[in-house]
């Protein structure tokens, strides 16, 4: 029996986890298995969790403004560990030009404030089905 497995991670030091947790609840209610890492994860820990849990997709929630550095590190580490085929999406306060930059870097989707939960769920389902 196949189920979509999602990693919801809070990399960096930022402690605002309302968004991450609300999204995690929505994903669970959409029938997915959600691995939640808790606060203050290093890029290393995030990638390790993704690797050991063999998730289908990775969600990073970042509200501290440290998104560029964190995403770059996570993507590089994923490549190094051989799991760069897994899609990564980012949620948080991300300025539009940074969002563009992140997508160029290889981030699949950037969800800003006010994104409907349904859009996130659909987007993840779509990415996994591909």
């Amino acid at each position: 029996m196949k189920r979509v497995k999602v990693l919801v991670a809070k990399p960096g030091l930022d402690g605002h986890d309302r968004g991450a947790k609300v999204v995690a609840m929505a994903l669970r209610d959409a029938g997915m298995e959600v691995i939640y890492t808790g606060l203050r994860q290093s890029a290393d820990e995030v990638v390790k969790a993704a690797l050991q849990e063999d998730v289908d997709i990775i969600g990073l929630s970042i509200l501290s403004g440290a998104h560029m550095r964190i995403c770059e590190k996570v993507l590089n580490l994923m490549k190094e560990k051989g799991i760069d085929e897994k899609p990564v999406f980012v949620g948080g306060i991300i300025p539009a030009e940074d969002a563009l930059e992140l997508k160029k870097m290889g981030i699949l989707e950037v969800f800003g404030p006010g994104t409907p939960l349904k859009a996130i769920v659909d987007s993840i389902k779509g990415a996994v089905d591909k």
Binding site: G12, L13, D14, R40, S42, S64, G65, A66, M68, R69, I70, K73
Partner: peptide, 8 residues
């Protein structure tokens, strides 16, 4: 642990 977060 501070990497990327300094002054943010």
């Amino acid at each position: 642990m501070a990497e990327g977060e300094v002054g943010k």
